[in-house]
C-alpha cells in the first residue's frame, strides 16, 4: 500500500516536471523574438557552444573513427569483404555514432557550462536584477543560449563525422592496407542522401533536447552552490538518457 502510494507520488512528480519543462519551453519561445532581434547575442553563444567544444569533438571523432576502422576491418576481413570498410564506417558514423556521441559530449562540455552559468547568475541575483531593470532574462540570457546550442550541435556533428571518417580511413587504408579506391567508392556506393538527412534530423533533435535540458536545469536550479552543482549533474544524466530514447524513436520512425 505504502509502496503503491510512493510510486504514485513519483509518477505525479515526473508528470509535474514534464509540465514545467513544457511551460518553460513555451515561455522561452515567447521570448524568442527578443533574441532574434539581437543576433549578436546568439553569435556569441554559438561561439561558446561550438568553438569551445571543437577540440573535444575533433579528438573524440578521430578516435571513434579509428576504433570503427579497426573493428570494421577485423569483422570484414573475416568475411573477405575489406572493401566494404569505408561504407560501414561512414554509415555507422553518419547515422548513429556521430549524432549520439556528439550530443553526449556536448552535454558534458557545453551543457554543463550552460547550466552552471545560468544557475550561478540566478544564485547571484543577476537574473532578478535584469527583471527589475525591466529586461526579460528569458529573452536576454536563456533564449540565445538555447539557440546557440541548437545551431552548434548539427555542425559539431558534421565535423565529428568528417573527422571520424578520416580516422577510419587512417586505420583502414593507411595502417591495414584496405584499397584506397575501394574504401571511397564503396562508401559512395552505399551511403545516400537519405542517410545524411537522417543524421541531420537526429543532430537537430539532440541539439534541441540537450540545449533545452541545460538551460532548464540552470534556470530552475536552487539558489545555492549545492543546487547549481546538482543541476549540472542532472543536465548530463537527463540529456544522456533523453538522447538515447530519442535516438531509438527517430530511428524507428525513419527506417
Amino acid at each position: 500500500m505504502g509502496r503503491l502510494a510512493q510510486i504514485g507520488r513519483r509518477l505525479a512528480q515526473a508528470i509535474r516536471k514534464l509540465g514545467s519543462v513544457v511551460l518553460f519551453l513555451l515561455t522561452m519561445l515567447q521570448a524568442m523574438p527578443y533574441a532574434l532581434r539581437r543576433p549578436r547575442l546568439v553569435t556569441v553563444q554559438i561561439h561558446n557552444a561550438g568553438v569551445l567544444s571543437l577540440v573535444i569533438i575533433m579528438t573524440s571523432g578521430f578516435f571513434v573513427g579509428m576504433v570503427v576502422g579497426l573493428q570494421g576491418y577485423d569483422a570484414f576481413s573475416r568475411l573477405r569483404q575489406e572493401d566494404l570498410l569505408g561504407a560501414a564506417a561512414a554509415l555507422s558514423l553518419i547515422k548513429e555514432l556521430g549524432p549520439v556521441v556528439t550530443a553526449l559530449l556536448f552535454a558534458g562540455r557545453a551543457g554543463t557550462a550552460l547550466t552552471a552559468e545560468i544557475g550561478l547568475m540566478k544564485a547571484t541575483d543577476q537574473l532578478s536584477a535584469m527583471e527589475v531593470m525591466a529586461i526579460d532574462p528569458m529573452g536576454r540570457i536563456v533564449a540565445p543560449r538555447f539557440l546557440g546550442g541548437l545551431i552548434a550541435v548539427p555542425f559539431l556533428t558534421a565535423i565529428f563525422n568528417s573527422v571520424g571518417i578520416l580516422g577510419a580511413y587512417f586505420v583502414g587504408v593507411q595502417l591495414m592496407g584496405v584499397d584506397n579506391g575501394a574504401f571511397w567508392s564503396q562508401m559512395q556506393e552505399y551511403v545516400d542522401s537519405g542517410d545524411i538527412r537522417e543524421g541531420i534530423i537526429k543532430s537537430l533533435a539532440f541539439g534541441g533536447a540537450a540545449s533545452l535540458v541545460a538551460v532548464f536545469e540552470g534556470y530552475t536550479a536552487d539558489r545555492t552552490a549545492e543546487g547549481v552543482g546538482l543541476a549540472t549533474t542532472r543536465t548530463v544524466v537527463v540529456t544522456s538518457v533523453l538522447v538515447l530514447i530519442l535516438d531509438y524513436m527517430i530511428t524507428s520512425f525513419l527506417l
Binding site: T124, Q126, S128, E131, V132, A134
Partner: peptide, 19 residues
C-alpha cells in the same frame, strides 16, 4: 510591470553585476 520598473532602481544585497 516593465513600464513601472523603468522608474525603479534596485541595489541588490550581493550587487548582482553581470559577471
Amino acid at each position: 510591470l516593465y513600464d513601472l520598473r523603468r522608474h525603479i532602481g534596485m541595489l541588490f544585497q550581493n550587487s548582482a553585476l553581470l559577471t
